[in-house]
Design a protein around this nucleic acid. Structure first.
Lengths: 193, 193
DNA sequence: TCCTGGATAGTCAGAGTTGACTAGGAGGTG
DNA sequence: CACCTCCTAGTCAACTCTGACTATCCAGGA
């Protein structure tokens, strides 16, 4: 069952996943995640990270391990995972892998309203989109090719590539059919000269 | 440029898109959208709809058209689109269609942390996921087949189908490779007996 | 006739999120 | 050696969103 989690932000999952290896303070984790390119997979800003640490602590998944200070720098609070946190990590991962979630990508919203634009314009915009998709594909492929890590650690990038390829194919197919649909479509735009 | 919109919630896009046809009050739109199955494309709850109407009004994209009351029922406030609202609708649509957004699906987050689970368990979970994906595919295909509407109005459902098929293929491919990766992977789970 | 459940229409407290702000230290440079 | 910029580490006000709550009307069953 997808009963509601005490901490819903996926950034919390990443925190648990990293703390299982070693206790850390938020700022250290922030650098680590950026270095690993995790910001491509998990949305996070500097500010939300501290929020999530606070939420996880309140929920009992992590505890303050120690607080230290170097020179006059601000104090650092190091957190460690609890047993409850370890359990939450496993349980959350199981749910995310086993149950495909119904999500709401922006492009889907736009497609559901697509008749609001004139078909000629849609065709031009879709060609722009194809360019953008190809750029994203090139980026992802460069990351996979350029890394010397085991493919296990880039499996999320391969997933992204698979979805991007599917979207490219869909957009091309859409472009091919647009002319056939023009008669019906035009009905919505009579008033515009 | 993706300069920040005054109203960011995609539900606002739907509101603009429907009000372009006729003025409406929030509750009426809510029924209409549910009847059209728009909740599959755009996330919305009853409560957030009233919020979004308020935000759009504050931003000048819609205005109160009239308020009426039938019997002792609560008062209904009917809103109409302004010229600024019409412009925002077009501009927003153009951006959403032309520029592929980098989004953060939950499954990507899980994949980036996948080594936290034992490979045997991941294999089992992925098989569960395949079942779920096939159910979602069946659902989407039934919607496309069962509707007598023009395919233009179901293009978002076809997009979903394309992505689901791509994900099925990816998961199957992942399952095939899991055995090869087991030696490396196992390294993370020595401690667990 | 009374009662229950669902549709109608909207409000709002509390939880979550974002982005801007603080403030000292280290490193480079003209 | 004064100045500027980036790095370190964290806080917080303002905004957004969710879900629970209010209140009336109407249809159908007991």
């Amino acid at each position: 069952m997808t009963s509601k989690r005490k901490v819903g932000n996926l950034l919390g999952l990443a925190v648990l996943g990293y703390l299982v290896r070693a206790p850390m303070h938020p700022y250290e984790l922030s650098r680590l995640m950026r270095a690993h390119g995790d910001d491509r997979s998990i949305k996070f800003t500097h500010g939300s990270l501290y929020m999530v640490f606070g939420q996880l602590a309140k929920a009992g998944f992590i505890v303050e391990h120690e607080t230290s200070r170097e020179g006059q720098r601000p104090e650092r609070t190091v957190y460690a995972l609890t047993d409850a946190g370890r359990a939450e990590l496993k349980d959350w991962m199981r749910e995310l892998v086993a149950e495909p979630a119904h999500e709401h990508p922006k492009f889907v919203a736009a497609l559901s309203m697509i008749a609001a634009l004139h078909p000629d314009e849609v065709a031009a915009l879709l060609r722009d989109r194809l360019d953008g998709l190809r750029r994203q594909l090139a980026e992802a492929e460069a990351i996979v090719a350029g890394a010397d890590a085991h493919p296990l650690f880039l499996v999320e990038e391969e997933y992204r590539i698979a979805l991007l390829n599917a979207e490219v194919a869909f957009v091309r197919h859409f472009l091919e059919r647009i002319d056939d649909w023009r008669p019906l479509w035009a009905g919505f735009h009579e008033e515009e000269r």
